[in-house]
Design a binder for these strands. Sequence first.
DNA 1: AATGATATCAACCGCGGCACC
DNA 2: GGGTGCCGCGGTTGATATCAT
Length: 226
Amino acid sequence: MGRQPCCEKVGLKRGPWTIEEDNKLMNFILNNGIQCWRLVPKLAGLMRCGKSCRLRWINYLRPDLKRGALTEAEEDMIIELHSRLGNRWSKIATHFPGRTDNEIKNYWNTRIKKKMKLKGLDPVTHEPILSKSHDLEKEMHHHQNLGFQESLEDHDQMQHNREGSSMSIQSREESSCNKNLDVGLGSSLVLQNKESLGNFTMDSYHNFMDTQFFWDCFTGLGDSFP
DNA sequence: AATGATATCAACCGCGGCACC
DNA sequence: GGGTGCCGCGGTTGATATCAT
């Protein structure tokens, strides 16, 4: 016997979220935190599955989300990280506080990919596009290297964690992005993982409400609030 | 102004790893 | 230890917006 099923798929709502649903989900999470996504829709009174609620919160409702287009610096960083990590969007997103893996993935697929092709670069290998016969050879070479790069990356990360080094890409990016977070959220509120989301309380929410960044989150939604 | 093409991005789907029973 | 479900991830789809003709 395993766990109970995540949700009854029958009768669940799908498609775009309404403002009312957003309000319900946001209010519930801000008041109760997140213990178990399976229970969130039930307790919040939503006809959605937990997976859908999780996605909506992570990609759209989280108060620490950075709005607006990615900067050129961020774009360069994405390209650099992608050359090292490949399509591991969640790993790449950890270098960009306030950005979601979905956002970065979309940005890559719709814009960066095109730009690279225009520059004559292969978006997969990040190397100049050559003839087809060379492509196959290069692709094999690339895949052989992936495992090696991965272990290097993990090693880098472990080294970084041990030494608290400030020299890596991650540190450089975090130092600039955390300024945004500090302004918006204060030092007590860091929403990077499930555990910290669970600690997201009304107190931190009220502090956050005093900031311009908070109200930017509701651009376009304001008319619908009472 | 109407229509088709293209770009954008929110949301869904399916899978793998891990935790739970 | 094995079966089952949850969570998170990456790939993909489809609705909407924008641009070109």
